[in-house]
Each structure stands twice: as C-alpha cells, then as structure tokens.
Design a binder for these strands. Structure first.
Length: 850
RNA sequence: GCGAGAGUGGCGGAACGGCAGACGCGCUAGGUUCAGGACCUAGUGCCCGCAAGGGUGUGGGGGUUCAAGUCCCCCCUCUCGCACCA
C-alpha cells in the first residue's frame, strides 16, 4: 500500500464510537453529512477518464420495492467503486413521471396528478437517500416538468420536419381499461403490458414515429453491443424481424387489378394453386361484387377481422378460408388460381396477401387439404423422388425445380434469384426486404403526458407549433373522468388555436405522447440537465455518452431499449450527438423473489426496503441483496440470510471495538515496524488476496457476491490473527495492523457506506472513506515459500505434500515418487507416465503388468 | 415448433481443464451466560467404518484427456423469449 497522505486528527475525536453497532444512529448521521457537503456532485476533475453508470429511472409510484433496491444497490456499488478507482463518474437519478397511474389516482381520489406525482417523488427520494445511493441530485430529471417535456416537443418537431413523425388512420390496439391506444411493443399476448386487459382492434387517426426507417441500422448495430446479454440482442433481432424475399405481382382476372404478394420462396412460384387475402385487404370488397353469395361472405369476412390479430395468429387457431369467386393470374405461367380470404393472413405484414403453395409450405398444405385445393409439386428432393407418391406433408427443404418450365433443373437457391430476375425484367416483381417491425405509435388519448405540439387546421392540415411557442403547456385544473378521447379535448382554452401557417382558426392536437418518448432520451438530458437552449449541448453529450454501464429489468428488452437506440441514431443523424449507441454495456438484473415466489400482497410474502432499513439498516440490506446472488440471476430473499449479513457487519464493528488500541495516535511509520513474522505475513497475504479478488470481481466480472465473500474471508483471517497474537505482538505491529484494518474499511466502503464512514472517521481521519483511493494489491505479498501439492495416482488424490514454491517438475516427481501415502497404490504396478504441474499437483499414471 | 439460458449439499451459491462444494444460511457439539439472545471454538455432500481409512458424488448416457462441473456428441428437465411473418 502506498504512502499515507491522509489527514489524521489528534486524539480528541478518537473512539467516540458507541459500544454496539447501531445503524439507526450512524446511518442518518452520515446521510446528513454527505448531504450538507453536496458530496455526490459529479465531476470536478475532467482530466480523469469518464464513466457513466445509470440505472433505469423509475416511475414515481411513491414506494420503493425490493426490485428497485436491488438495481440501485448494484449501480451504487459500481459508482462508488469506480470513483475510488479514479474515474470521473456520472451517476444520476430521475423520474419517468408521466403516465397513467397519476391520472387514475386523479380520477379515483380527485387529487391533482402533478401534486400526486410530486409527493410520490419526494417520498421515493427520501427512501433512496436512506439507502445512501450516491446520486448527483443536481442533475435530477423529472419528465412531467415543462423544462423537460418542452424538449420532447422540440424533438417531436424535429422528427416531424424530417418526415419521421406522421399522422395516419390505422388499425390500432385499443386498451379498453386504460382507454387509450398502445404501440405494438406494448401488447403482450394480446393483452395490455400495463394492465393485462385484452386489447381490441380499432381504426383511428394516430401519430407515428417512423422507426421502420431505422430497421436495418437497428439490426446491424446490434453487432456493436458486445456488452449486452445475448438474449436481449436476440429479442431485438426477432422483433425487427428482417426477411428477404420477392414481391410478385399477380393480376386479378375479373377486374384487372394488380395483386402483389411477398414471398421468401419465389422458386416455388409454379406451385401456386390459390391465393389468400387478409380480411382487411382493399381488394376484398371489389372481388365480392357480383358474387351471388356476397352478403354471406362479407359477414364471414367481417367476423374474421373482428377477431384481434393476436387471436387470429395464435398457433392453435383454426385456419378459416372462404372463396371470393375471383381469380389471380400467375405472372410466370398465366395460370388463374382462385382467390380466398383467410383469417391467418395479416394485413400488417407484407402486402396482406399470400400465394398458396401447398406442396412446399406446411401451413398451405394443411389449408389445401381442408379446402380441397390442388397440390402441385415443383421442388424435388435430391434424396428421394417426391414425384413417385402423393405428399404426406409439405416438402419445405431446398431441392431441384420440376414442373417449372424454363427453370426446371435449377437448384432452389439459384432459382430464387433466377425467378426474381425474370419477374423484375418483366415488370412483375422485385427483390424485397421486409421487416416485422412496425412504425411506433406514439399518440395516447390521455391527459397526463406531453402534449403533441401540433395544430390541426382544416385548410393546412397538421401544422407544427412554432419553436418559439414551446412548451405547449399541459393545462391544469382539468376534470378527469373515464372518456373515449383525451380529456384535453374538453378544454376549450387549450383546444382553441390559430393556424401558424394561414392564421385561420384551428384546433390544437389533444393527443399526448407515449411515456416511452420521455424515456428514450432522458439519459442524454442528464449530461446537461439545466440546458435551456437545446435538449442538451453536444459537448456534454459527447463527453458523457454512451452510458458505460446501464442496469435495469429485462422487461424493457425490446420496448425502452429499442426506442432509445432509435432516438440515439436519430440524434446522431441530426448532428446533435456523436454517439451511435446509447448503452455500451447492459446488465439485466434478476428479479427478487421470496420463498420461491414473486412477492405479492395476496401471498403475504412482501418485504420492503423500509422494513429492512428500520430493522437492520441500509448497509445490511445492500450487503445482503448483493451477496445473495450474482446480479443477473433471480434472487430469493431470505430473512435468515439478511441476519447473516447483519452479523457480518457487527463482526467487523466488534473487530474495531476490541482492538481500538491499534488506533491510538501513533508517530511511527510503517518502515519502523519490526520485520513481519510468519503470522503477519499470512495476514498480509490474506489482505492482498482479498484486495485482488474484490477488485477483479467488481471491475471485470460484476460478481458482487464473490467480492463480498472475499471480504468476509479477509475479516475471518483477521479474527484468526487476533486470537493467535499476544498483546506485545499486537503492540509492536500496530502500524502494520492499522493499515490492514483500514484496508477492510476501504474495500467494504462501496457496499456498506455508513458503517465504513463511521469506522473510518473514528480511526481519526477527517476526510471521508469514500474519497480514498482504491488500494492496489501487491503481487509480491501473495507469494508463499511453500505450497501444498496434491499427489494423484491415476487421477485420484492419494496424498499431499508441502514443497518449496519454486520446486520444478523434477523435484516434484522426486518427492511424489517417494511419498508414503502414494506407495501402496503403486505396488505391483508399472509407472507409465507422470505429469507434474508446479504449484498444483503431480499425477502418476500407473497400470498392472509391464 | 424455433431461439436463448440454466440444471452442483438441507438452502443461497463458489470453483484459469488440475484437491468439487469458497463464502453465507441452516444444523450438531462444546464454551460463555441465572436464563434466553448475542458471542466464541470445532464439525457438517452422501455411503461403509469406533477409528484410521475406503468408496462414491456436479440431471442421464457416450466421448476427448494423464486429469472433465468445466471441452465435444446425444438425451431428459426447467426458465425465458418468439411463435401461422408468408
């Protein structure tokens, strides 16, 4: 360890420690101390390397739960550790403060959503402070404040000017309980992500952001995110759903209309025996004209489109089809095939029409069997001749084309290109890349959100509000009730507007923004939270971005994390920031369970951070939550386990109590201490081994659980030493022991900030333990003279021996051969081979006979 | 069905291809205490054995290796994600 440059006070303030470890007393004391000193303000030393640690900001529900406590503890240990390691750390916190719960509270209890939110924020902040989370509160961001949401509006207008925000009538997901529409990402298995009510389809005019323009980049750049869990990258990849294929233009025989389909298998084009349209396909109506059964069919089609998309696409939903009477002409061979309407075809993907190739698509195969449609083989297998017998199932593998005129004999892979080329040169199709990703629907018919800064003019259409007019303030005093449209639509003063373009009378847009809009860029605002000319300055953003370590729940794997990546790329394109990706590394922390089940009031197994703080203190809570499991794994909360963490902190406390004499003021320096004895060397080794492990476990592996166990081992070693040494030894090694014990305090500090601050300042220091440099371990102190080496016979441990550390292979072999415990296992056997691994083991391979 | 991850004591969890079970919980015994709690010491995978000692053991089965929880192949179970995407 390095030189002492710390301030030590005189004997006056020393050891005023209470006998008993009492978190109730020391925790508030140090929280005040840090608050008064504005201790956690960012920066001050731009010469250091920057590190941005961020936990996903919470919705201000008013109460912290164990999940919050876990994320924040992880982030806080990291932030504190990195500061001690000499980084310039940004570690901010804020509030995702718009959203439905505030509005619902308003409806139920008649409270003002803003007041409700603000008092929740105050309550949660108090809890966060009680956990000693080292946030720079000067950078706090609250999304429902006008000085934040005006920049939502500013960014919206920027999207609008770039053609990336647009309004369109579209079938959308309506949540009847939340009384608003939802984005595709916010529908899980046909249910609202927030309240789990079944969503229903509706046709409405809505605002969208054109995230689909960024589909390819969002997909490609997943490669850059090596610090993300693979499963999250895979989820995003699936969600974007890139698919390469061919658009093929058929012609409707009866009307002459063009009918385009998308397929990934143009090589099977000659096998088309029918065509299926989505119930919502625009041609359906026209095709039914003149059909004697039109009325009946229309009823069936309406039935189909009434079902939600989710029901229709559920794997176990029966495929239903109905003939329209129309026919489609295949561009490649002029053949006319019947056109049906089918419930399994979705208007939202591809062109809303699919070609039916029953011989080579299992889904089409089953459908054709059901409806007695012809099956024509056009791809033959290289292994078995499929033409010999009727197919029992679709042949979906690649093969060689048959029954396909000029393409006969081509392998599928080549035929895909050949058919596409043929279609392209005949104006009947093109190569085409499609995505499953849809544009992001951002309007919400709710009050408590960012007003969309648009004025709807009868003459000019949607016109952006002038930048100088921002923010469009959310009016107060709105009476909230359950309603089909935004409550803002009832507010005449808000509604009334003048068209910025023509000056005519116009209506203000009453939809508000999805709250995911707020959370898509808040991490940039933290870099420059007071900025009032722009959302943030480029300089600040470029200094801090990307977030080096982001920590949060896996539930945002697609939603928030995809939207944020989209925003970051847009900001980059606009020259507002240089970051390509927002989050360098991502940690998806596991959930907190109790007794193997999710905590819930009905199960009566809820534990709250408040209870833990009241009973054991924040330090114990933090320590346990980090010790019980690695951060990315689910954690089972265990009351007895918490007890164990509390016990450990008391054990540390007692160590200092019992040996306070070590800390009486000294003038000696380390060099004047007598040479260390064997016991002391062992202790020093334990110290540096622990130091090494804690450093590596936090910095490289994020394994806080093993880091803590290393500190425990260190403390155990200190107890053993103290038991073994006598008063004289203790006295003469006082400076050495002092340094050892101070190391305990320093490396425990990121985990348990209060107790360590108390112990540290009780040792006589006037500067905070949290301002100390993280000690470097000395590899020389890890060395030992002798090591125990295992002797194996045929891979089984048969003996152990103590040999000099420096012993080479030859010496090991010598010693192993003569080892008494090993002899019996070698009797009557021949030694075939001996492997010696210095410092570890010797393995003797022996067998019977010669 | 497709994709990803995971299966280790009574429990949470450790183990650069090199002594499986660190650390903690729980449990057992002893000490201390009027008692309880707290604390200290020792022990604690399973089986046989009084013991010394031996056997066995990381979901199952194969393989590579002097050596496998770890690498390769097959299978089973669980969790998560996607799921008629044309």
């Amino acid at each position: 360890m390095g030189d002492k440059k710390r301030n030590i006070k005189g004997s006056g303030g020393l050891w005023e420690m209470k006998e008993e470890y009492s978190p109730k007393q020391i925790e508030p004391k140090w929280q005040n101390y840090w608050r008064e000193q504005n201790f956690h303000r960012t920066g001050g030393d731009e010469g250091k390397q920057k590190y941005y640690v961020l936990e996903m900001f919470p919705y201000p529900s008013g109460k912290l739960h164990m999940g919050h406590m876990r994320v924040y503890s992880i982030g806080d240990v990291l932030a504190r550790f990195l500061r001690m390691r000499g980084y310039n750390v940004l570690h901010p916190m804020g509030w995702d403060a718009f959203g439905l719960p505030a509005e619902n509270a308003a409806i139920e209890h008649g409270v003002d959503p803003g007041q409700w939110t603000n008092s929740n924020i105050a309550a949660m902040k108090e809890q966060q402070d009680a956990l000693a989370l080292s946030y720079d509160w000067e950078r706090e961001v609250t999304t429902c404040h006008p000085d934040y949401y005006r920049w939502n509006q500013w960014l919206f207008l920027l999207f609008f000017k770039n053609g990336l925000a647009y309004k369109r009538k579209a079938p959308v997901n309506w949540c009847p309980s939340c009384q608003t529409v939802l984005a595709n990402e916010q529908v899980e298995n046909g249910a609202c992500w927030r309240c789990s009510s079944a969503v229903a389809p509706r046709e409405l005019e809505q605002w969208f952001l054109k995230i689909t323009d960024y589909a390819q980049r969002l997909l490609d750049d997943l490669k850059l995110l090596e610090g993300w869990p693979q499963r999250v990258r895979v989820m995003q990849e699936n969600w974007i759903g890139r698919s390469e294929g061919t658009d093929i233009v058929f012609t409707v025989q009866e009307t002459g209309d063009e009918l385009t389909v998308f397929t990934t298998r143009p090589d099977t084009l000659f096998g088309v025996t029918y065509m299926v349209l989505a119930p919502e396909h625009p041609l359906v109506g026209k095709l039914l004209e003149g059909n004697p059964r039109a009325a009946e069919i229309r009823r069936i089609v309406q039935e189909m489109s009434r079902e939600s998309e989710i029901d229709r696409t559920a794997a176990d939903t029966e495929k239903v089809g109905v003939l329209t009477g129309g026919h489609a002409v295949n561009p490649v061979n002029g053949e006319a095939v019947p056109i049906l309407v089918g419930n399994y075809v979705l208007m939202s993907y591809g062109t809303g029409a699919v070609m039916g190739v029953p011989a080579h698509d299992q889904r089409d195969f089953l459908f054709a069997k059901e409806y007695d449609l012809p099956i024509r083989l056009v791809i033959n297998s290289l292994q078995t001749n499929l033409q010999a017998t009727p197919l029992a199932e679709a042949y979906e593998e690649p093969g060689v084309l048959v029954n396909s005129d000029q393409f006969d004999g081509l392998p599928s892979e080549e035929a895909i290109k050949a058919v596409t080329d043929w279609l392209a040169s005949n104006g009947k199709g093109n190569h085409r890349v499609r995505y499953r990703l849809r544009d992001w629907l951002i309007s919400r018919q709710r009050y408590w959100g960012t007003p969309i800064p648009i004025i709807n003019c009868a003459a000019c259409g949607p016109v952006p509000v002038q930048e100088s007019e921002l923010p469009v303030l959310l009016p107060g005093g709105i009476s909230l009730c359950d309603n089909q449209q935004s409550p803002l639509a009832d507010n005449a003063a808000f509604l009334q507007a003048t068209c910025p373009k023509c000056g005519g009378e116009a209506r203000r847009e009453t939809d508000t923004m999805d709250t995911f809009f707020c959370s898509s860029w808040y991490y940039v605002r933290y870099t420059d939270p007071q900025q009032d000319k722009l959302p943030f300055s480029k300089e600040s953003a470029d200094y801090w971005l990307p977030v080096d370590q982001y920590i949060g729940g896996i539930e945002h794997a697609v939603l928030h994390l995809l939207y944020s990546r989209f925003f970051t790329k847009f900001l980059y394109d606009q020259g507002l920031s240089s970051a390509q990706e927002p989050f360098q590394r991502l940690l998806a922390q596991g959930m907190v369970y109790k007794d193997g089940a999710k905590m819930s009031k009905s199960k009566g197994n809820v534990v709250t951070p408040d209870e833990i703080i009241a009973r054991y203190g924040a330090d114990t809570g933090r320590l346990f939550i980090l010790f019980a499991a690695p951060p990315e794994k689910d954690l089972d909360w265990n009351d007895q386990g918490v007890e164990g963490s509390y016990r450990f902190l008391r054990r540390v406390w007692r160590l200092f109590q019992q040996h306070r004499d070590i800390f009486t003021p000294v003038t000696e320096t380390v060099s004047s201490t007598p040479a260390l004895g064997k016991k002391e060397e062992t202790l020093r080794r334990a110290c540096h081994a622990s130091l090494k492990r804690v450093t590596v476990d936090i910095e490289e592996r994020f394994n806080f659980n093993t880091a803590i166990s290393a500190i425990m081992e260190f403390v155990n070693a200190l107890y053993i030493y103290m038991n073994e040494c006598n008063g004289d030894e203790k006295k003469s090694y006082r400076p050495f022991l002092r340094e050892i014990m101070e190391t305990v305090v320093i490396i425990l500090a990121p985990f348990a900030p209060h107790i360590t601050e108390e112990l540290w300042q009780s040792c006589g220091y006037t500067t905070s333990v949290h301002r100390q440099a993280w000690p470097a371990y000395n590899p020389n102190y890890l060395l030992v003279d002798e090591v125990e080496v295992v002797v194996q016979v045929n891979g089984k441990v048969r003996g152990r021996m103590l040999v000099p550390t420096a012993a080479g292979e030859d010496e090991l072999l010598e010693a192993a051969r003569g080892h008494e415990k090993v002899q019996p296992f070698l009797d009557g056997k021949k030694i075939k081979k001996i492997i010696a691994v210095p410092g570890k083991l010797v393995n003797i391979v022996a067998a019977d006979g010669n």
